[in-house]
Design a protein around this nucleic acid. Structure first.
Lengths: 160, 160
DNA sequence: AGCTTATTGGCATTTTATGCCAATGCTGCG
DNA sequence: CGCAGCATTGGCATAAAATGCCAATAAGCT
């Protein structure tokens, strides 16, 4: 694993909150001058610790007020795992898809405008897909927490 | 809802992929000159369509190779919803928490280093929390899709 | 303590952001 | 069909930020 000292962790922590800080602002936030800050940042990007930067949109502002988790069961006899994985990439309302241990099914997180939209997605897209034998939907009542920030606490003490 | 024309959607689409593009690069990507590009961007930020920018870290690179979904059931008689919601904010390994319809339970997504870490989280943190009566964990075998990009297709045709 | 190596801070240069204004394109109406 | 009025754009000048370089500093090792 890559060596990360306290300064690196501070950089990561700050950028997980605001990925668009200028180098100057970042430098100030972590209490270091701009040049070494930039060098460290580049290294973190280079090493792949920072995978990417993204803008997060406000779902409600673009008419995506609803959200659901959908468990998808595939027929294990048909070998449709790959095509399903591929299809999932192409469905934009699917925000995440995880293969789960145990039941060997898939858990999708889906965002949508309204129930009609969701219904269309399930009826016209998901269920007709080859290998899909069953889906179980659970609607989100409330997002209590939703972050892209990963914990870093377990890394303190790695260096310096 | 805010009016978004095709150019706005292109901006959003591009920034959902790379939130750190310079205004110049963004302008080039959407085929518009820098000044109106910046003006539109500021408006989108102003209006809250773009909520924030973040750096996404690579979990594997910081020793967070494992992930699970945990269903938490609270005792409905105790009124612990608020304290639970609060506690969840403070637990860094909980990346998301949603109140689900139906069973009225909570679905957490949790990232961790290894099973020992997860075990500690469940045993020492989650289960002892007031009101928690049961938890059911499902481990992630594979992340098939994981995006922060929301669909925009439903907005085309809103203007211009 | 003294030597070696890694890291920092500050400066000069290049690149980018940003505010402003004239030019262009669109809309609606006569 | 053309013209007035409004909204949006493109380009330019200025301010701010990024970036590469080098001497100075700090940290690690014996």
């Amino acid at each position: 694993m890559i060596e990360l000292d306290k300064i690196d962790l501070k950089i990561l922590s700050v950028l997980q909150q605001d990925g668009r800080l200028s180098n100057l602002e970042l430098a100030e936030a972590i209490n270091l001058s701009p040049s070494p800050t930039l060098r460290r940042l580049k290294r973190l990007e280079q090493e792949g610790v920072i995978g990417r930067y993204v803008a997060l949109l406000e779902p409600a502002k673009i008419g995506l007020g609803l959200e659901a988790f959908v468990r998808v069961m595939l027929d294990k006899r048909e070998r449709q795992f790959a095509t399903f994985a591929e299809a999932v990439q192409a469905w934009p309302e699917v925000v995440s898809c995880h293969a789960m241990a145990g039941e060997m099914d898939y858990l999708l997180r889906v965002v949508f405008e309204d129930l009609a939209h969701f219904s269309r997605f399930v009826m016209d897209t998901l269920l007709p897909h080859p290998g899909v034998v069953d889906v179980k939907s659970s609607f989100v009542l409330q997002a209590i927490k939703q972050t892209t920030a990963l914990p870093l606490a377990h890394l303190v003490g790695g260096r310096s």
